[in-house]
């Protein structure tokens, strides 16, 4: 299948499907001042979009890695977030708390 032209066409088209946004982003970046309200808004959209995707992947990953129910995933996330908040926003400790809690849930077979 390495020589499968249909597959490679799909790969090139898929690469273009991502490249189009990178290209538009670079083009827009050169036309928007970094201190303008429009730039601030684009930043808000970027933060919210990344946050929405990461939260979805965290809670509802789908596929065969979905060993743990959403409720327990949310619980592990909360442990991590609260740990992070209470430790003056220490990312290593928050990560340790959340991943530790999640590993415990997996080990317990919940």
């Amino acid at each position: 299948m390495t020589d499968d032209p249909a597959l490679w066409s799909a790969i090139v088209i898929g690469a273009l499907g991502t490249f189009v946004w990178r290209f538009l982003g670079v083009t827009i970046a050169s036309r928007v001042r970094a201190d303008s309200p429009l730039f601030v808004w684009i930043g808000c959209v970027a933060y919210a979009m990344v946050a929405g995707l990461m939260a979805r992947v965290l809670l509802m990953p789908g596929g065969d890695i979905d060993l743990v129910s959403m409720g327990w995933r949310a619980a592990a996330f909360l442990v991590g977030f609260v740990t992070w908040f209470l430790t003056r926003k220490s990312v290593p400790l928050g990560l340790l708390g959340g991943v530790g809690a999640y590993a415990g849930i997996v080990a317990a077979g919940l």
């Binding site: 499907g17 946004w21 538009l24 982003g25 827009i28 928007v32 970027a46 979009m49 990344v50």
Partner: peptide, 17 residues
């Protein structure tokens, strides 16, 4: 693919800066 990776647009604008 474009739908799934649309986040690249605002990320590229702000990331480039």
């Amino acid at each position: 693919v474009a739908l799934a990776n649309l986040r690249m647009l605002p990320m590229a604008v702000t990331g480039l800066s």
